[in-house]
């Protein structure tokens, strides 16, 4: 079912769904709604999941995802494929906006409180091959994260998902700032090493 008419004549809906993200972004730049819709469908799940993980409430996560995708629609011309995949770009926007929301204290008090256990109720069943692949990928990354020494995974999680600065984390954990930054580096290095073979991170 088509929710909305496409803005102008363009590739057929089925044809658009066959295109790679980078090709779709070319169409998004030209105002092709069908291309935007496909980008949304491909990445909204992980975007919402990330926003929910950071914000801790469904309403805030929805606001963040809405803002992020509309920013993508309005500034698609800024996507530069030489700097990474569309997914990385989208998730970067989502992350920044979710952390901004946290720091504005909009959701500060409720973060990490999964409101009414909604995370469990929302957990998505995999319907497509792509979603199954995404689930497997997520599992592999979680395993790699869990394999890190706890002191390293903790500082990474507090910084990335919690939006805390290294000085805040140092105070929280009662450790020197230099130690915290060192743990961050060691953790990221190990994560890279663990995932390099899977092709999820680039070997540089």
């Amino acid at each position: 079912m088509t929710l909305l008419p496409t803005h102008r004549e363009g590739p057929s809906r089925a044809g658009v769904r066959e295109l790679a993200d980078e090709e779709l972004m070319g169409l998004v730049r030209e105002g092709e709604m069908a291309a935007f819709e496909v980008i949304y469908d491909r990445h909204s799940r992980v975007a919402f999941s990330l926003a929910y993980r950071i914000c801790g409430t469904r309403s805030s996560a929805e606001d963040v995802v809405q803002e992020a995708f509309l920013a993508l629609w309005r500034s698609g011309a800024r996507y530069d494929r030489t700097r990474g995949s569309v997914r990385t770009w989208v998730l970067g926007i989502v992350h920044n906006r979710a952390i901004d929301a946290l720091r504005r204290n909009v959701v500060h008090d409720r973060r990490r409180a999964s409101d009414d256990g909604i995370a469990e109720r929302l957990e998505a069943p995999e319907r497509t091959d792509a979603e199954v692949a995404q689930r497997d990928e997520a599992r592999e990354i979680r395993v790699a994260l869990q394999a890190l020494p706890e002191e390293q995974s903790r500082v990474i999680e507090l910084a990335y998902y919690g939006g805390f600065t290294h000085t805040e984390i140092a105070e929280m954990l009662n450790a020197p700032v230099g130690t915290i930054k060192g743990r961050m580096r060691l953790g990221l290095e190990k994560l890279r090493g663990a995932l390099e073979g899977s092709g999820m991170v680039t070997a540089r």
Binding site: R45, Y52, G84, L91, E123, A138, I156, L188, V201
Partner: peptide, 18 residues
């Protein structure tokens, strides 16, 4: 190091977007 950070969004529990 950014390439390691880029995988972090994928590690969270996958939820259905409403």
């Amino acid at each position: 190091l950014s390439s390691a950070v880029a995988v972090l969004p994928l590690a969270v529990t996958q939820l259905s977007a409403p």
